[in-house]
Design a binder for these strands. Sequence first.
DNA 1: TCTTAATCGAGACGGTACGTCGTGTCTTTCC
DNA 2: GGAAAGACACGACGTACCGTCTCGATTAAGA
Lengths: 205, 205, 205, 205
Amino acid sequence: MSSTAADSTAAAPTRRPGRRRDAAKDALIVDAARQLMVEHGFDAVTMDDVAERAGVGKATVYRRWASKVHLAVDAMTAAIPTLTVDDVPDTGTLRGDIMMLPGLIHRAREDAATDLLGPARDHPEIADQLHQRLARDRVAVIRGLLERAQVRGEVPAGRDLDMIAAVGPAVIFYAKAFSGEQFTPELLERVVDGVVLPLALGQPA
Amino acid sequence: MSSTAADSTAAAPTRRPGRRRDAAKDALIVDAARQLMVEHGFDAVTMDDVAERAGVGKATVYRRWASKVHLAVDAMTAAIPTLTVDDVPDTGTLRGDIMMLPGLIHRAREDAATDLLGPARDHPEIADQLHQRLARDRVAVIRGLLERAQVRGEVPAGRDLDMIAAVGPAVIFYAKAFSGEQFTPELLERVVDGVVLPLALGQPA
Amino acid sequence: MSSTAADSTAAAPTRRPGRRRDAAKDALIVDAARQLMVEHGFDAVTMDDVAERAGVGKATVYRRWASKVHLAVDAMTAAIPTLTVDDVPDTGTLRGDIMMLPGLIHRAREDAATDLLGPARDHPEIADQLHQRLARDRVAVIRGLLERAQVRGEVPAGRDLDMIAAVGPAVIFYAKAFSGEQFTPELLERVVDGVVLPLALGQPA
Amino acid sequence: MSSTAADSTAAAPTRRPGRRRDAAKDALIVDAARQLMVEHGFDAVTMDDVAERAGVGKATVYRRWASKVHLAVDAMTAAIPTLTVDDVPDTGTLRGDIMMLPGLIHRAREDAATDLLGPARDHPEIADQLHQRLARDRVAVIRGLLERAQVRGEVPAGRDLDMIAAVGPAVIFYAKAFSGEQFTPELLERVVDGVVLPLALGQPA
DNA sequence: TCTTAATCGAGACGGTACGTCGTGTCTTTCC
DNA sequence: GGAAAGACACGACGTACCGTCTCGATTAAGA
């Protein structure tokens, strides 16, 4: 669940003495952080806020996460069910498959995650976590759908599937981050029909 | 009434008395902020640092910018020469035109500007500034190039030029922000040849 | 009038050109400072406050007084009419004479002047002004009354008149400054009858 | 010891958890403040200076004292050993007893405390502390010596001991504050022999 | 009459202290 | 020894004030 929390599932043949770490607290803390950050943004949330909301001491938080950024990464991503191609029902067409995605993804969290881009810059290993969870997962699923469509014969061989899979999330993120546009079904349709499908299905240039 | 006496009642935009704000200080401060932030990142730079480097009192900074974020937005964007289509020499082909762009854009600043996405969230009017300067300018130029190519006959009528113009910056930004990829000529070629040109020049889906 | 304002009476046979200083502004500024400081205390009043209340630019203030403390000294003391023995009607008895004093002195300003003791410490020449105006004047008057009483035969020769004259003001100031007692006719009577008159009139120890 | 620091001696049968305030820090801070203020004066000392000298964070200072003035009051008075009559050896005569006092009192601090009279004005509860510690203690001791002398038969019954006890400190403070005189043995003698003893021992007026 | 120089109100300026607050660590008491 | 509570060192933030400087307008004196 957490990239930095001690792995409580590790086989510990010789358990050390002392009270065991309450695994339930992990969830409490992550939930508190997620709620607060989704609502107020990364900067406006303090570690004291998180600890208080979680009904937990600050030390307990820091015993599990090394910093606010570490926690935020987990908070923003942990609860996102790792979507895989198999989770997307086969509708028979690439377009149909792609249109299923928004319903499967909770987007509020991705917005909040934007706040992490800056702070995560000087923590490469954290940025990595963030990237993996937000972008790679998302792109990987679309890539899977493209492959499925290729098997089906919809998508010709020889296309740069990695690139095409990335275009959709990229444009939508860009529109949100820089142009302030909200995500809407119309935007999705415009991207899918104007960019993704032409690239995937259209004639070679 | 004298013919030479300045008519003080004339359209005088009623300048208030008092010492005028030294316009040169604006540049001094913005430059200091830009240099420091490009080098160390948003969080590592303090307002005292900026004031000291600019040779200016902190009050002077706060008289012109309401907060660190406000200043940073200007610092990261003000000095970016507003690129217009006319700045891009006409190479005769859309591909050639687009390939000119990286040389015309200074990218270090855009990286630093990423740090601002988070802090700017809770200041919509600031985010607006940021968006306008970073994204809209960039996209507008490409849109101009597309129109130029359309006039030239390269690009068929009826294409969603806005969308196509946005795809390039979007994919490149996404690659940098989420996948940690650096901008390289190869990435540019892959995007241009794999996405932008097919969409702009290719057959309708 | 002012200890630090430029001496306009200085013999200047060759006056330089230029606008003359508006003498009326001196009073305006001093009055503003006095009102504000009596009401709010030294620290709570800013030079901007004074300038604004006086309807004057800050530079005009600083052209006449070197600092806030300098101005405050004048403000607190300038308007105190320099009391002399001759202003005190001869009631025929030392006690009667002394009892006239409170009615002749405006005390609110002395309270406000207390605020100056601290700030004036590191400006000896200012402290000097303050001392002279507040204490010496006051004590000098009482000394005059003692001498008058000595002529009258009330006070025996050989008494330390300087010391006796100082005791009254000292005790009353001490009571106000350190014990927080307000000045009342009762306090005055207690000091006069319990301390000053015994020392002045009583038998030698 | 401290007017505003939490009273750690409060009977707390159920102490709350949490790190206790390090009582040693109180002394560290007060000592730092006292040294700096005695040396440089109230205005020239900053809270950062105090914190640094004390080896303490600024927040720790502000957790215990609400403002610079609050701290200064404690700093200037806390370390003054509360002198009582019992600390004054019985020399057999009132004069002898009184002459012991200067050696028992450290005066540098009282000078520095003068700086507080102004700033403390708009904080009545602070002024109260200051008054109590500086004046009342001092006067109380002298009053004790007077009573001791009364028992001894030196001082006749019916004298206003409160007033007589206050006269000495008052005159000496007045001389210092308003006339700029330094405290000297000569001044003391003049006050004792010219004012205090005549009032205490002399014939009724 | 024209030039020169000082004053004026307004307010920007450099410097600096204040008091607040956030992070991440450490300490105390209870379990 | 883990947990809640909260003190602690460090350091940035944004505000406020002091005393100086600059601006355009005004007002005298001298050429």
